[in-house]
């Protein structure tokens, strides 16, 4: 068919394919090294991620190797017809059986993780109401529900609100993004609300997202374990400036959180909003 001798051509092709497969495997491994997340829940999900990844890589290497081997070993070497094998009972049972076992195992492990991370929030968890709107976020804290350091005398109507504004497209620096303050090592429950279109509350380092749906209230709880700033953004297409619905999750020590609450309360609610000063109630 072609000028080049058959065997040379085949060796070239098989080498190319083998190299491509190897390169893919290498990148797959490298890519999988993602940060494990900063919440208890994220770490469990990350474990599951690795189980799926290892199972996937094993399947990929076995099937890929068989494919490359077959292409080299069984390349056409003459006009003689190979045995006309149509398949048979036992092999076809294995064809079904092996995938069934793999998927049932993976499903079972997934469900165990799902149940594990899906615990409802504790009574005393800090609650933050998250409202997505075109095109930013509002983070709302009730003064009567600040988690372990809640002031029992606070007025439940008193809230501090962080309201983001539309970020100009050409502002690369993070300063302009709304910041969601969270105390480290404490469970926090998010109440997700939208009044315009669907948004999705996505914090990469939680390894989690949940949609904000008009007409529906979603919620989930996590316990962040690592202080720091984490960039996050809307994950559901919500219109022209969807890409600019960015925000920062700032996980801080409890006293820093209390100081921030005090400052925001003073700014937003006036000095008398706090019946007693935060930082003294903790026990």
């Amino acid at each position: 068919m072609l000028g080049m001798p058959l065997s040379r051509r085949l060796r070239l092709i098989s080498a190319t394919v083998a190299a491509a497969l190897l390169a893919l495997m290498a990148t797959a491994t490298a890519s999988a090294i993602q940060p494990g997340g900063i919440t208890d829940e994220a770490r469990k999900m990350n474990d599951l991620f690795w189980i799926v990844t290892i199972a996937g890589l094993v399947v990929f290497v076995l099937v890929g190797a068989a494919l490359v081997y077959a292409m080299i070993r069984y390349r056409r070497q003459g006009d003689e017809l190979p045995p006309q094998f149509h398949g048979g009972g036992k092999i076809e049972v294995a064809m079904v059986g092996v995938p069934v076992l793999i998927v049932i195992a993976l499903f079972t492990i997934s469900m165990i993780t799902l149940v594990d991370i899906d615990d409802p929030a504790e009574e005393d968890a800090l609650t933050v109401e998250i409202t997505g709107f075109q095109f930013s976020w509002q983070f709302s804290y009730s003064m009567a529900d600040l988690g372990t350091n809640t002031d029992p005398n606070a007025d439940p109507e008193d809230r501090i609100n962080i309201i983001g504004t539309l970020q100009p497209i050409d502002t690369p620096d993070d300063e302009i993004r709304p910041v969601l303050y969270l105390p480290v090592d404490e469970e926090v429950e998010f109440i997700l609300i939208s009044n315009d279109v669907i948004h999705s509350f996505y914090v990469k380092d939680f390894l989690y997202k949940l949609d904000l749906i008009p007409g529906r209230v979603n919620s989930f709880a996590v316990t962040p374990r690592v202080t720091g700033d984490y960039s996050a953004q809307c994950a559901e297409l919500c219109g022209t400036n969807h890409a600019l619905m960015r925000f920062i999750v700032r996980v801080v020590e409890r006293d820093e959180f209390d100081a921030w609450v005090a400052a925001e309360a003073a700014r937003q609610l006036g000095d008398d909003a706090l019946v007693s000063s935060p930082g003294t109630q903790g026990d």
Binding site: A70, R76, V103, F107
Partner: peptide
């Protein structure tokens, strides 16, 4: 969703089994 991986896996076996023991050319 996991279960749909089963017939999909069967097809991969179909294709591998077709190549296996064949006399393969590469146009």
């Amino acid at each position: 969703t996991f279960m749909i991986g089963v017939p999909t896996g069967v097809k991969i076996f179909n294709w591998l089994g077709t190549l296996w023991g064949g006399s393969i050319s590469f146009p």
